[in-house]
Amino acid sequence: MDIRVKICGLKEPEHVAAAAEAGAAYVGFVFFEKSPRNVSLERARDLALDVPVGVAKVALTVNADDAFLDELVDTVPLDMLQLHGKESPERVAEVRARYGLPVMKAIGIAEEADVAQIDLYGAVADQLLVDAKAPKGAALPGGNGLSFDWRLVNRKYWPAPWMLAGGLTPDNVAEAIRMTGARQLDLSSGVESAPGVKDPKLIRAFMDAVKAA
């Protein structure tokens, strides 16, 4: 499949298996206590050990310090770190150098002015995750099921590979691909039956919709 998909916020072995079986290229584990998708390091380690070879294991963190990241990479077998907070470009470069893992930086988009961050962070990150900016006062920096105006990133070319996120579902993913030209997609709430509860049927439906697109 030409388009690579990341299913994020996985908490159960059967949902990791469903994502891999449906053709996901990445699986994501969330380490943020306020999120309904938060998992412990020990739980994530057990889940990661069952991920099939060839599927990338990604850890989502939010403004994490070195102490937590040290413990994370020592405990969980990972392929990539995703920084989903207010980390500066300098911090992204620091994390990348310290751990020797590819780093994906999330960028929140709500208006044209936000797009400039993509070039800024694209110079220091291995990948970018272009997401809907969280509403003011929101408890979560992502995973809110919100999309943004896809015209803001329509057929743009950035200095690093990028992934489209924010409110993607089986029903709108074909339109998202058409409007943005994205070759990588990230979703979490769009394949859930309740906050933090993945639905294997929705995972399969999403992947089928991507293949059809």
Rank of each mutant, 00 (worst) to 15 (best):
M207L: 10
I109Y: 09
L187K: 02
A106I: 06
S147G: 13
V92F: 03
A138W: 08
D114S: 13
E33T: 15
K211I: 01
L81A: 08
N38K: 05
C8V: 02
D66F: 05
E175H: 02
D2N: 06
Y99A: 07
L83Y: 06
K133I: 04
K198Q: 06
A176K: 02
V55G: 02
R98Y: 12
K6M: 05
A176I: 02
A174C: 12
A182T: 07
V124T: 11
D74W: 15
E87W: 08
M163L: 05
L72S: 01
M104I: 01
K133G: 03
V30D: 03
L164M: 08
M207G: 00
M104W: 06
H15T: 09
A48Y: 10
Y121D: 11
V53N: 14
L120P: 14
R155G: 11
V197E: 14
D70F: 15
K198V: 09
C8P: 00
L140M: 14
V173C: 02
L10V: 07
L47F: 06
N38P: 11
K156S: 13
C8Y: 01
V191M: 07
G108P: 08
G181W: 03
M1F: 06
A64P: 14
F68L: 07
I107P: 00
L41F: 05
Y121V: 09
F32V: 03
A25I: 05
T169F: 06
D65R: 01
G108R: 08
R96V: 05
V210F: 04
I3V: 04
L10N: 07
P89T: 12
D149E: 12
Y121N: 13
G23R: 10
L164N: 12
L49F: 02
G142Y: 13
D50A: 15
E42D: 04
A67V: 13
A44Q: 05
D131W: 07
S88T: 12
Q117C: 11
F148Q: 10
A110L: 08
N144W: 08
A174N: 05
G143R: 13
K201C: 01
A176T: 07
A64K: 12
A125P: 09
P36I: 01
A97F: 06
Q117I: 12
A213H: 01
D46W: 04
A25E: 06
Q117M: 13
E21G: 09
